[in-house]
Design a protein around this nucleic acid. Structure first.
Lengths: 251, 251
DNA sequence: ACAAAAGTGTTTTTTATACACCCATGC
DNA sequence: GCATGGGTGTATAAAAAACACTTTTGT
């Protein structure tokens, strides 16, 4: 345990309270996931840093929190600066706050600490439009082909991936990220891509979900190349209500 | 959404970067749970505030993070200032960080924000020894008889209670908080107290757990008043290993 | 005609749930 | 002996898992 209680003269806090409290700058970093069902790939949004530290390395889109701005507001702000998207799910992930996680802490003499509150987001791939502002790189990366990221961002993504799998198994996030109407194999592809191929047989997955009764068959058929046309379904939020807290088992 | 970007002259950050970033003081608040199996009560540790704001109100034990101290270190520090305990489980809960959650934000002219990273702890009740420092009140409160707490601490506890139930159902935390050897009804009591009486039949709970094979019968019997003496069991961490990530269903 | 994708049904195995009953002790 | 808590077993229902088969399209 590191417990060095040096009093820095310039520490705003110490002069006020007599204790060597840390001064913090709080950042929000987003782990933004998306599923490309067409190519069966689980993607993550990365941006190229064009500032020190870690200049020229890929990182999660992040920002420092502004005055009067809530953490969640900040998370939505970075998100909307990087992609245009109407349908998404967002929730807080974890707070990484150890000393020495940010090299800027060493550089500046003020003893300021950098803390990162990470948020987890899942967005609809088809409609997500990346905002390229000319200079900065921004790209979807397959989760299994990640480069070395800035800060502890690889760790954050690892944590986020775990959360994504859980969310999918125990909550209806999938429907936040699917179009209004979708086929049952769209849904199955989504699950299979995130959870891995071995999670369930298509036909069992199918009958389990239909039995739950919150997927309404629109009777509209859609044909995609060869094969029998599929029925389009709609997620019925009302019919889902009774399942709210109970763990939904999709696996 | 509150987005007032007034630049405060004394804001350390704004003078450095030209942006109106918020300056943060980061606190750690602990939701410390314990189960009194003798009386079938789920308890939570509260301390009486003897400072403004919220002077004279009960609150979660908390502290501001010091220089060079990690968030988790800070969490352990408050914990050890309040109770002496050898066996415990601790993990990060959630970060509450909206503006205006702390009245001190309004008072001081520096525009400093107070952010709370909450931690969740579960401690062994029998061995937990409260540290009363004379003046400050400190007490176990039954979760269902909470007073009005300072800040947003009631909300934090609500969130923590949810986490506790999850942890119990899906992880072996119970064994961090039970003595080295315990009877199966000790274990059952613990679960019943936290999860409510309706979670499972004792005999079914029993056979399910024994079938999993990570509870070793020491063959030592213990008699507690009337009734047949019970066998003492030990949690076998090695035998548990294969179950690590898989969701354990105790419910 | 036949491959491809959608959709239905059946069988087997496993797990959950309810509950009846025997066992060993204190009083 | 009987109340009390510990422990075992059984019968039924429900869910998970595996897989065979039918239907409807494009080519």
């Amino acid at each position: 345990m590191r417990r060095t209680f040096k009093k820095t003269a310039s520490s705003l806090t110490s002069s006020l309270t007599g204790e060597s409290l840390a001064d913090f700058r709080v950042g929000v970093d987003n782990a933004i996931f998306s599923v490309d069902t067409a190519q069966n790939r689980l993607l993550v949004l990365l941006v190229m840093r064009h500032e020190e530290p870690f200049l020229g390395q890929w990182s999660l889109p992040g920002t420092l929190v502004r005055q009067g701005e809530s953490l969640e507001d900040a998370a939505y702000r970075i998100l909307s600066e990087k992609i245009r998207v109407r349908n998404l799910y967002l929730e807080q992930l974890y707070t990484f706050g150890g000393p020495d996680r940010d090299p800027r802490e060493a550089e500046d003499s003020y003893g300021v600490r950098y803390l990162s509150v990470s948020y987890f987001a899942l967005v609809r791939f088809a409609e997500a439009e990346l905002i390229a502002d000319g200079v900065s790189g921004i790209a979807w990366y397959p989760l299994d082909q990640l480069p070395q990221l800035a800060f502890d961002h690889n760790k954050i993504l690892e944590y986020g991936h775990g959360r994504l799998k859980n969310k999918l198994e125990y909550s209806p996030v999938a429907f936040d990220v699917l179009p209004e109407v979708f086929t049952l194999s769209d849904l199955y592809q989504l699950y299979a891509t995130v959870l891995g191929e071995h999670f369930s047989d298509y036909s069992n997955f199918r009958s389990r979900l239909l039995k739950l009764g919150f997927l309404a068959d629109t009777k509209v058929k859609v044909s995609r190349g060869a094969g029998r046309p599929a029925s389009l379904y709609r997620f019925d939020a009302e019919a889902f209500a009774p399942f709210q807290d109970k763990p939904l088992v999709f696996i």
